[in-house]
Design a protein around this nucleic acid. Structure first.
Length: 658
RNA sequence: GCCGGGGUAGCUCAGUCGGUAGAGCAGCUCACUCGUAAUGAGCAGGCCAGGGGUUCGAGUCCCCUCCCCGGCUCCA
């Protein structure tokens, strides 16, 4: 006998329904639009299918297709459809896991006889998927006992492993597992192990595209079997799919590797080696401006500048511990002075800290010197694995804007607070505005330092972060073994996030190097050390800025701020005077003479080079002492602008970092 | 490091069945002297990533190395 139950909706209203009512019916009762947009539901926070009968009272939420949750359902269901298509087209294929991810989904497969997917397979799979969508197969949920599940997936070892693992860790002995069945004409339905929920039928899907095929390890284990992963993207409508593909194109347009070539900023000559960049004159100029500005700010911020060499004897990295836990990330040693004996091993440095520590330790330090802040643009070399190097954002040779702060335990909270302010201010000066912070705390298993020290340092970092008033994400247990850290994440112009600065408290190094200072009490104390980099690496930050600005650097950073284009040869004298004047005002100006190309061609080239101000000077300007100004990003050039006004505009743009 | 795809002129790319290398842009020269996104003509430009092999003959087929791209793992 069905009884009535009360469902509470997110707006607080209630619905009195017969027990066994399905979420789809509730949605339909609320409105046509909602029913159409619904893809799944949540009852008391638990995901359920629209078609699943609701047996008890609770809070019901209808999940709609264009919401983050709704898209997750669409994507996950699309992943199932892809698995069905693949098993159709590649008999014997084993399927492993296929979750929804940001903007899409993937599914991992193992093909018989070690076969591999190629890019040419994707259109075939897509076509088959569209057939499945057209067939409007329902997703039917079934709950089966663990043993039956194992049996049903007898030819699917990865599924069996999931069942065994889930059973042991999450659900417990004897519990049921859920599977989803897609009935189809023919006799063998496609069945996948899945916790759900799914859309009611495949008809709800269709706005998807398979994007790439790649290798992936089973359960992310480098030593486990390597599977074939197919990635796709899926959306609630064709329009949303198109918009997503357009965003990908936009990101591609901003790719710093492409712009680096086009704007003649940097390159990676094959002759030098993987992940080793050279900066061309224009790129090096931008970099110099970045470095000069950083130095200026550090000088004002109470930092001392230091310098250290690129290589060192093995012993230093033994003392620091790098050779114990970071040897894989270091270039192999050089052997020198090997005449008759063993000689000496030297290493390229992967980090600057040991050098700064030696400077601290070069003489006895007083508490009066603390906090002692040592800054260096320190070049380091890391042996990044061959598959991970990526443009300027992941390189093997880089220069860090590195500093190490030695302070007393008592000074630490204050120092961390002002440090975070300093970091954020500098990043804002480079046009990044949108940040959030990540706080990484003590790893559960292995850590140096006492619990008390960790708590103290973590609390100090947290206080600094909270005072900054930014969103704070907790990365529980994600700290390095030697201390907690804050990392600053920045969102760029198209919403991508980049990890930039890190502020890391270190209990380990002062101990290993037995650092001390003499306190006011005339006793010796161990200082706290703070590692911090603002840009992270200059190369990487440079790459991020290129993408953030899509190559159109703000005036203060632009390698060429003004281009002067005389209309014809007879205006060369006036143009030269103008260029000299601007140069004298400190403006970075390029004179593009009239003798070879037409004016239109020269304007075009300057525009493609993303020069902020393109000045055209002709008869009228020579007579009146004015310039024609074509500002980057504007359609209409201005005529008859007084040179003084132009100089003032450039100067103002530089000062405000506009 | 692993899986997959690649490497042809400075850049973007074509190159058939294994038969001896091609375009556009950029560069250089000349002409044009022009008011806001491509003036025209001509010239030059290549160890087809490098090495080895198969073959009468290799950009093309095979092997090794280097480098790049997309992922995985990694990012202390």
């Amino acid at each position: 006998m069905a009884s009535n139950i009360v469902l509470t909706l997110p707006d607080g209203s209630t619905r009195d329904v017969v027990s066994g009512t399905r979420a789809a019916e509730v949605a339909a009762a609320i409105g046509k639009g909602l029913a159409k947009a619904a893809v799944a539901a949540r009852l008391d926070g638990e995901w359920i299918d629209l078609e699943r009968p609701i047996e008890h009272a609770g809070a019901l939420e209808i999940i709609t297709d264009a919401s983050p949750d709704g898209r997750e359902v669409l994507r996950h269901s699309t992943a199932h459809v892809m698995a069905q298509a693949v098993t159709d087209l590649f008999p014997g294929a084993r399927y492993a896991i296929g979750p929804a991810i940001e903007d899409g989904f993937y599914y991992d497969f193992e093909l018989p006889d070690g076969a591999r997917f190629t890019d040419e397979d994707l259109p075939r799979i897509e076509a088959r998927m569209q057939e499945i969508v057209k067939a409007a197969q329902p997703f039917v949920r079934e709950e089966v006992a663990r043993d039956e599940g194992l049996e049903r997936f007898s030819d699917q070892p990865y599924k069996r492993e999931i069942i065994e693992r889930v059973d042991a860790s999450e659900v417990g002995e004897g519990s049921v597992i859920s599977v989803y069945r897609n009935p189809r004409s023919g006799n063998d339905d496609f069945v996948d192990l899945c916790r759900g929920p799914h859309v009611p039928t495949t008809k709800r899907l269709g706005s998807f595209k398979l994007t790439k095929v790649a290798g992936a390890y089973w359960r992310g284990d480098e030593h486990g079997p390597q599977l074939q992963r197919i990635y796709g993207t899926a959306w609630e409508s064709k329009k949303a799919l198109e918009e997503h593909l357009h965003r990908l194109e936009e990101a591609e347009r901003r790719d710093h590797r492409k712009l680096g070539v086009e704007l003649d900023l940097f390159s990676f000559p094959e002759e030098i080696g993987s992940g080793l960049a050279v900066f061309h004159p224009k790129g090096a100029l931008v970099r110099k401006i970045m470095e000069d500005y950083s130095r200026e700010r550090h000088e004002a911020g109470g930092y001392s500048f230091v310098n250290s060499p690129h290589i060192t004897k093995e012993q230093l990295f033994q003392t620091s511990g790098h050779l114990d836990w970071f040897a894989d990330g270091m270039f192999p040693p050089m052997h020198v002075d090997e005449g008759s004996g063993e000689g000496t091993k030297y290493y390229l440095k992967p980090m600057n800290c040991p050098f700064h520590i030696l400077i601290f330790r070069s003489r006895l330090r007083s508490y009066r010197e603390l906090p002692l802040r040592m800054f260096e643009f320190g070049s380091v070399y890391r042996y990044e694995k061959s598959g991970v190097v990526h443009g300027l954002t992941r390189v093997r040779g880089m220069t860090q804007d590195d500093a190490h702060i030695f302070c007393s335990k008592e000074e630490m909270p204050q120092e961390l607070g002002s440090l975070l302010d300093f970091v954020l201010e500098l990043l804002r000066d480079f046009g990044l505005e949108d940040f959030y912070l990540e706080l990484s705390t003590k790893p559960p298993d292995k850590a140096v330092g006492t619990d008390e020290e960790w708590e103290e340092a973590t609390a100090a970092l947290r206080a600094a972060a909270e005072r900054a008033g930014l969103e704070l994400v907790l990365d529980e247990g994600g700290g390095a073994f030697y201390g907690p850290k804050i990392s600053v994440q920045a969102r760029d112009a198209i919403g991508r996030t980049w990890q930039l600065s890190t502020i890391q408290v270190d209990f380990q190094m002062p101990q290993r190097f037995e650092l001390e200072y003499v306190g006011a009490d005339n006793e010796r104390h161990r200082p706290i050390m703070i590692h911090r980099a603002l840009f992270g690496a200059i190369e990487r930050f440079f790459g991020i800025l290129v993408e953030h600005y899509a190559g159109a650097f703000p005036v203060w950073l632009a390698p060429v701020q003004v281009a002067v284009l005389p209309v014809a040869d007879r205006h060369e004298a006036y143009a030269t005077r103008l260029v000299d004047r601007l140069r004298a005002e400190g403006v970075r100006v390029e004179h593009v003479a009239a003798h070879s190309d037409g004016l239109g061609a020269r304007v075009r080239r300057a525009k493609l080079e993303k020069v902020p101000y393109v000045l055209v000077v002709g008869d009228e300007d020579a007579d009146a002492g004015t310039v024609g100004v074509n500002v980057r990003g504007s359609e209409e050039p201005e005529r008859g602008v007084a040179v003084d006004d132009l100089v003032e505009r450039v100067r103002a743009a530089v000062l405000t970092h506009a």
